[in-house]
Design a protein around this nucleic acid. Structure first.
Lengths: 337, 337
DNA sequence: CCGGATGTTGGGAGCGCTCACAGTGGCGTT
DNA sequence: AACGCCACTGTGAGCGCTCCCAACATCCGG
């Protein structure tokens, strides 16, 4: 291994070929799977690679293959609050891991502003990446949405409203999860179950409310409050609900973070959990075990979601048509309900 | 703009040149700053670029310039708990933002296992990125550390013990932060201020104790207890301190998690916070707002840290020598002091 | 013993770009 | 009028790789 590589020219495929006593073509064949290469040649090339410390030059390879062997992780969030969401970390980890298995790096692109989004879209459409994983794309965002139209493989997290090209996506069964939690609250004896929703213009938001309604029908409107997934908004929504429906004895919150805010507010209002009010969250974020009592919640299979997204993207890059995957959620019972 | 770019060959610099009625070279000059290009030629090229929707091919460019125009964000964590740390998100956001200004994408690499680390190091050393941002590199990790030795610009987060090549780094001012907190406790009226330190053989540990001593001199040894950053160790240290110095009225704890443990112990001993004992933490971790009352603590400037790291890395890529930056911390007042 | 299928190899061509260099022509200076 | 200097331009030569095709060896069945 060239320990003193600092100055020396990096070895090329030609150097390896010369050392192995074969041609460029043969080395290239070894590099790309080693089919139709005689065992002695293969061994010689392997040895030469080892000896020279050769590493393929991605740029040269990509120039001719027109494949960048990398994918973009596009975070198209208007507010970068998402960065503080622990699920984001899980997602990111899942994707990097799944990609690492294919030796593909992940390019992180944050598109906060409209201009960013344009830049990122151009970047991706220019073929600098083979595909893109889309997160929290605002509904109907034209710039990012166009990506798929430009022939760039894309997989979204959560269902995206198709305004034209059908977008591949992976989502947890939000509606089913909400149904699961609300049913559980009811079976635990709750009679007046309120809910705090997330933003209804973001994926997951409407579905969780639908799940709530699946169980309770068109519940009294005073039992429904809205938040924006932040802890503060959860507290505010809870205060609002306590004002409008002081007799509530169950609360389904569409995110753990909001649930934590809501529980703080319940405590301040003198309501005990789960004694007076049973609370159910959604996400099973780390926040769920920081509440007192710990939060009963719905676990989204984030690790699987990210793995599935990556799998779907890679298969799309390989030429398969876009597909959608819905994954089941899981009820995690803790102290709050 | 080629709306139907799905199938069509992407325009090359040659296409632009032909349309603008100039040569390849002139288009290249425009692309790279437009020096020594006549105004009419420049205008014609600009128009042609606009018209063809031309986007430079990074791979071709990188092949000749030997610059990838991208940097790696290397997360070398044994435990991937870091992913759940909100500070990690802040760091990541700060870096992407700073890089986006230079139109450089960020390659995320997670090196959890030893093998991962080897892979990532090879990847970076192979010149696939122009430099690397290093996070939570295990002390003296040989594989990643070698990067700098291989001539790859590297900037670490936090001071790294140099086993050879001096590594550029950006860190928060631990000692100053400790000083800040202890001074604050004293100015709040505390007369007997104890401290719980972190492990003295890890970064930050000694510095935070030094800061404590800067304010209080060589305080009575019974006022100093040691922990290991875990919540349990904080509780144990607090019990010890209460035994040795029952009259303590101030407590500076070197991490929020330990502070939480200590506060639990104080409560059990019947001491009220901040009435009987004022408590100050360090880190402004999420744990800080889970205590009752919320914890007054020292915030590390994560956003600035990431921005500085990026700046340092870019300047190093531009040829400047490695440097170190220490950034001031901030006192966050909450209920506990 | 021959034609063809099969396995293996070398080398030319070219991916899209930048860089160095050799021109051009217009200008001021001697 | 001859000169050098300057701003500007076009072009050849690659960067390191993959792809393709021709060339060759080998082996089989007829």
């Amino acid at each position: 291994m060239a320990r003193d590589a600092t100055r020396r020219r990096r070895p090329t495929i030609e150097d390896v070929a010369a050392l192995a006593g074969v041609s460029r073509g043969t080395v290239s064949r070894v590099l790309n799977g080693g089919v139709n290469v005689s065992p002695p040649a293969l061994a010689a090339v392997r040895r030469a690679i080892q000896h020279t410390g050769y590493v393929v030059n991605h740029h040269a390879r990509s120039l001719v293959t027109r494949r960048s062997q990398s994918v973009a992780f596009i975070l198209s969030a208007s507010q970068d609050r998402l960065f503080e969401d622990p699920n984001f970390g899980t997602l990111l980890r899942g994707c990097t891991q799944a990609l690492a298995e294919h030796d593909m790096p992940l390019l992180l692109s944050v598109a906060g502003t409209e201009e960013d989004r344009r830049r990122v879209a151009r970047f991706a459409a220019a073929g600098h990446v083979d595909g893109a994983l889309l997160f929290s794309a605002c509904y109907g965002d034209p710039v990012i949405g166009d990506l798929a139209g430009h022939g760039v493989p894309v997989v979204a997290c959560g269902e995206q409203p198709g305004d034209g090209v059908p977008l591949a996506y992976v989502a947890a069964d939000d509606r089913g999860g909400a149904r699961q939690m609300v049913s559980y609250l009811r079976s635990a004896g709750c009679r007046r179950i309120a809910t705090i929703t997330g933003p209804l213009d973001q994926p997951g938001g409407p579905q969780r409310l639908d799940g709530y309604r699946d169980v309770l029908g068109q519940a009294a409107p005073e039992l429904i409050a809205h938040g924006d997934y932040s802890e503060e908004s959860g507290a505010a929504a809870a205060r609002e609900l306590l004002r409008r429906a002081p007799d509530l004895d169950g609360l389904f919150v569409a995110s753990d973070l909001m649930a934590r805010g809501a529980m703080r507010m319940l405590a301040r209002a003198g309501r005990r959990v789960p004694g007076d009010v049973r609370v159910g969250g959604f996400d099973d974020s780390p926040a769920a075990i920081t509440t007192d009592p710990p939060l009963t919640t719905i676990r989204q299979p984030w690790a699987r979601i990210s793995a599935e997204m990556t799998r779907l993207l890679l298969s799309q890059i390989a030429g398969e048509p876009p597909a959608a995957v819905i994954l089941p959620t899981e009820l995690v019972r803790r102290g709050s309900a």
